[in-house]
Amino acid sequence: MKVDRLFLLLGLLWLLGGMALGEHMGRTQDHGQMPTHAHMMLVGGVLSILWAMIYRVWSVPLGIIAWIHLIVHQAGAAVMIYALFGLYGEGDPATYGPIAGMSAVAIMLSALIMLIQAFRAKG
């Protein structure tokens, strides 16, 4: 399977997960995980789908850098969601804060990789 398709499929899974969390919050009237929900939808879902579209529409190379991009982004998103669940689930900020910070750096690195990839695009 190609990187662009994986970004799309994983993005859609993130969106479904975020929607499920949103539905749970609405049903229970407990909106304490709203930041987690937002990051799940935007970082996991929307950015993954955006990366898929950029790879496909602008013929961005799908070589090893694209695979590294996929891994960095998806790992960063997963760790970020884990850390936010901990932070907003009344976990210890001293424990979850640094994890959230490291995951944010991974997501920024993902955006930098996409910028590099965009410069390499043929279209």
Rank of each mutant, 00 (worst) to 15 (best):
I68D: 00
H73N: 12
A20T: 12
G17H: 03
V60L: 08
M34H: 09
L9Q: 05
L9K: 00
I68K: 00
L12E: 10
L10D: 07
L15G: 06
Y82C: 09
G45Y: 11
T95R: 03
Q74G: 01
I64G: 06
I65R: 01
G63C: 12
H39D: 07
G32P: 09
W51Y: 15
H69M: 08
M25T: 05
L70M: 09
G101M: 13
G26W: 12
A20V: 13
Y88F: 15
R56E: 13
R56N: 05
H39F: 04
L8Q: 06
L8C: 05
L70G: 00
I99F: 05
G76D: 02
A77Q: 03
H37F: 13
M102P: 01
L21T: 01
L6G: 02
H39Y: 09
R27E: 12
I68W: 08
H31A: 14
D92I: 01
G11V: 12
D30V: 08
M19E: 10
W67Y: 06
V46H: 04
G11F: 15
G63K: 05
E90C: 09
A94Q: 07
L13S: 08
M41K: 04
W51Q: 08
I99C: 08
L87P: 04
L6K: 13
V79G: 11
G17W: 08
I49F: 01
A52R: 04
A52Y: 04
L10C: 02
L16M: 13
W67T: 15
W58Q: 12
M53F: 14
L10T: 10
L16D: 07
G32W: 02
